[in-house]
């Protein structure tokens, strides 16, 4: 039986939708492929505050999810850091089984970032993608007023924008799918609003192969 947990660490308000878009799009794609999948936010981290770390979860399985009500991913196989400086300060590797994947939004190389990762021996690969550059991302503080309206939306219940991944989530989703195969590229790509950044990431992501799991 195949069971995969994806945990996304992001920052409250300013990058909340980005994190949500990653788990929601992967989960929706998995369900389209006939798998059982669930996406949710960490209930305790929310309601989010500007810049505070918040977690989003996705579970994909061949079998029905019996842990649907368990509110945290306990053993994430894939971890995404939506903002590069999150690499320091939190144990986002906690519970990761050997053979995991860590994906970071950063302009640094995986060789450089590896030194900050707690428990890197569990990683099969470390992936760096400069999502902010690829999505031509203008940092969000200058439009906090707008975000206050659009994003302080209580866990997405009243988001105005219906676009999935119009911004930095697009390259990160590309990295997740290309390096892990959690869902098929052809299923997820049509959902993505920022196709340009998605396609650029497929070419430009940097992957450091580490400790493949012995089969």
């Amino acid at each position: 039986m195949s069971y995969t947990e994806l945990t996304v660490w992001t920052r409250g308000i300013i990058m909340d939708k980005e994190g949500r878009d990653i788990v929601n799009s992967v989960s929706a794609s998995a369900r389209k492929e006939g798998k059982y999948a669930q996406a949710m936010e960490n209930y305790v981290d929310n309601p989010d505050r500007t810049n505070c770390p918040t977690r989003k979860y996705c579970r994909v399985s061949d079998a029905i999810l019996e842990n649907e009500l368990t509110y945290e991913n306990e053993h994430p196989n894939i971890v995404v850091l939506v903002e590069g400086t999150m690499v320091k300060g939190w144990d986002y590797m906690r519970g990761m089984p050997p053979g995991g994947t860590l994906i970071i939004n950063t302009h640094y190389t995986p060789d450089y970032m590896l030194r900050f990762v707690p428990g890197p021996e569990r990683l099969a690969q470390l992936v760096c993608v400069d999502a902010a550059k690829l999505a031509d991302h203008k940092w969000l503080y200058y439009r906090l007023g707008e975000l206050g309206l659009d994003r302080l939306s209580t866990e997405g219940a009243a988001e105005r924008s219906k676009l999935v991944a119009p911004d930095i989530a697009a390259p990160l989703i590309a990295a997740v799918v290309k390096t892990t195969g959690i869902v098929q590229m052809k299923t997820i790509q049509p959902m993505i609003a920022n196709q340009h950044a998605f396609n650029l990431a497929l070419e430009e992501m940097k992957v450091l192969q580490l400790n493949p799991v012995a089969v």
Binding site: Y43, P47, T154, E155, A157
Partner: peptide, 9 residues
């Protein structure tokens, strides 16, 4: 919270 999401919607 958690009712807030209902009133927002």
């Amino acid at each position: 919270r958690p009712y807030t999401a209902t009133m927002m919607a």
